[in-house]
């Protein structure tokens, strides 16, 4: 806390805002010298699946099952909205005929230019079709990740009675709409203890918005589409010869021992294609979900200032994971187009 002041009493605006925020945090969350409010920080419940916001299914897909509206769906729609806005902004800016874009579309252009350079270095003549996937995946994941960082995400939602273990407190009401909050009334002895199974007697918040990349459905959907498209690019570039990557009988009879090994490697390649789906899906999901939990936990342990640092970290991780997802897709696609030349053995 004090390190913000260490830099000297200069009259910059930003450092005074930071200092004021720290003091406000201290006032809210501690009994500091008896003047603070002493609000106890909430340790939220961790839900792995996206929480259902609607009790009734939104619609039922025939032969598949009911579809509920979950809070990750809000995240998905918001991410789609952001991508659409970027698309409109960029296409309008490009149509205006400027050589260099400015503002939001300029930032998107700078990001995509860097990604395009990487793609050109790897994909060669397949750059254009592969880059479309690279850009689409990166932009969607980036929008989704960063939307989880806006204030209100995962904190504003419906109070769900009989689920968590916190008391409900009315704040105020607008017409028939009651605005409530959950309130920790336990003693210090029980502080931070997550409710055990079957002991739900209080209330919990089901947030309206949760970033969609913390939902396995989204990451699996991305991974499945990416891996399917990798195979599509393989077939487009090599035709049926692409299949020999998995069913390699070329050297089976000419080289007695190594032929068998090559055949086995081909089968392993087939396995690795499926493991790509898993690793794609769980890498993004794990990073983002762990990031969200990390923010909860840090926020509940040290409610003042410490979380800001992790916010910056999550900001960075969100960008890195988006680019990594896109870049891995791009690299696998280019490898599929290049045939047997340079195969990495991704045995993970």
């Amino acid at each position: 806390m004090s390190e913000n002041v260490q830099g000297g009493w200069r009259f910059g605006t930003a450092r005074w805002i930071v200092l004021a925020a720290i003091i406000l945090g201290l006032f809210l969350f501690t009994g500091f010298f008896g003047v603070g409010l002493g609000i106890k920080p909430i340790m939220p419940e961790v839900f792995l699946p996206g929480e259902k916001l609607s009790e009734e299914p939104l619609f039922i897909i025939p032969f598949v099952g009911p579809f509920y509206y979950t809070n990750t769906m809000t995240g998905l729609l918001l991410a789609d909205l952001v991508v659409l806005l970027i698309a409109f902004g960029v296409s309008r800016a490009v149509k205006s005929g400027k050589m260099a874009l400015s503002g939001m579309s300029g930032a998107v252009e700078a990001l995509l230019e860097a990604l395009y350079g990487i793609t050109e270095g790897t994909a060669g003549k397949w750059t254009k079709p592969i880059f479309s996937w690279f850009a689409a995946i990166t932009l969607l994941v980036l929008a989704s990740n960063w939307l989880g960082l806006i204030p209100g995400a995962e904190t504003i939602g419906l109070i769900h009675e009989g689920h968590g273990d916190y008391a409900v407190k009315d704040l105020f009401s607008i017409g028939s709409l009651k605005v409530q909050t959950i309130w920790d009334e336990t003693d210090a002895a029980h502080e931070g203890e997550v409710a055990a199974e079957g002991e739900h007697h209080g209330a919990a918040v089901i947030p309206f918005h949760r970033p969609v990349s913390t939902d396995l459905n989204f990451t699996f959907a991305l991974a499945i589409v990416a891996v399917v498209m990798i195979q599509v690019f393989g077939f487009r570039s090599q035709g049926m010869a692409y299949l020999t990557k998995f069913w390699n009988t070329k050297t089976l009879f000419s080289k007695p021992i190594f032929g068998v090994i090559d055949f086995g490697v081909g089968l392993l390649e087939l396995v690795s294609e499926f493991s790509k789906i898993l690793s794609f899906a769980f890498r993004l999901f794990g990073n983002m979900f762990a990031g969200a939990v990390l923010l909860f936990v840090i926020g509940s342990l040290v409610p003042v200032f410490a979380q800001s640092m992790f916010y910056l970290l999550e900001f960075f991780v969100g960008l890195i994971q988006a680019v990594v997802f896109g870049m891995l897709t791009m690299v696998f696609m280019s490898q599929a187009t290049q045939g047997h030349g340079e195969q990495h053995d991704e045995a993970h």
Partner: peptide, 20 residues
């Protein structure tokens, strides 16, 4: 950098399995 990110991704996959 490209290859480094690839390598990191593969190494990280192990940690992801642990997390899963």
């Amino acid at each position: 950098q490209t290859n480094m990110i690839l390598g990191i991704a593969f190494a990280e996959a192990v940690a992801i399995y642990c997390l899963v």
